[in-house]
Computed example of a mutant assay.
Amino acid sequence: MRVFDSWHDWNTGRRELALHAPSVSLERLDAAVEFARRFHGTQRRPAGEPYAEHLFEVVEILVLGAGIHDEDVLISAVLHDVVEDTDCTIEEVREAFGPRVAELVAWVTKPDPAPGEDPGPVRLRYLHSIRSAPQEVVSLKLADRYSNVQRLGTHPRPEKQRSYYRETCENVLPLAAGIPWFEDTYRSWRDAYRHLDTRPA
């Protein structure tokens, strides 16, 4: 399976975008990166990497893997967690980057559970809602999840590795059906991590 992890810093991402997606405005992407950095601050991923690396990976997957050069989709990739994981609002995203970016980010923002509500069903409803989303939203979600699972073995909690594998197979792989690059990539990923499937045969 292919792993996308070469865009560790934004200078690398800019160079690759200029080469592979020359129609994309680097100035708008720069603004999105600075916006995301301001809100995400010192957040880190479960294995300890700076959170920004996840955002760059999602853009890398979309551009170098799926061949997507839609500027608003790439900006949304940079911003996809800013409402879910920080105190940023959709209105702030809309004001800074326009209504289409705000709509894309809203689609991939998991809602908070209501007071007393079990977060499990909320998460499941969110994943199921992506099935009816526009194609660019589905691609954005697939790239986001692939960044999170492409090195699943580095997650510090083995039980989380197993539960995330099951959730991805059951609720994310179906989204890739009919999208050739994502379908093939997730199939390879599923086979590479099949040892995490502890369900009865």
Rank of each mutant, 00 (worst) to 15 (best):
L26R: 11
E27Y: 04
E27V: 13
A31I: 04
E34V: 10
E34T: 12
F35G: 01
F35E: 04
A36S: 15
R38W: 08
H40Y: 04
R44M: 12
R45Y: 04
P46D: 11
Y51E: 13
E53W: 06
E57V: 02
V59Q: 00
V59M: 01
V63W: 06
G65V: 07
G67P: 02
I68A: 11
I68K: 02
I68S: 04
H69I: 10
S76H: 01
H80E: 02
V83S: 05
D85G: 10
T86W: 04
T86L: 07
C88E: 07
E91N: 08
E91K: 11
E92K: 01
V93D: 05
P99A: 07
P99V: 06
R100W: 01
V101T: 14
A102V: 03
L104H: 03
L104C: 03
V105I: 04
W107T: 00
T109L: 02
T109Q: 03
D112V: 04
A114Q: 14
D118Y: 03
G120S: 10
G120L: 12
G120R: 13
G120F: 11
P121H: 04
S132R: 15
E136Y: 13
V138M: 11
S139L: 15
S139Y: 11
K141Q: 13
D144K: 08
D144H: 12
Y146W: 09
Y146P: 04
V149F: 08
Q150C: 05
R151T: 07
L152H: 07
G153R: 14
G153V: 13
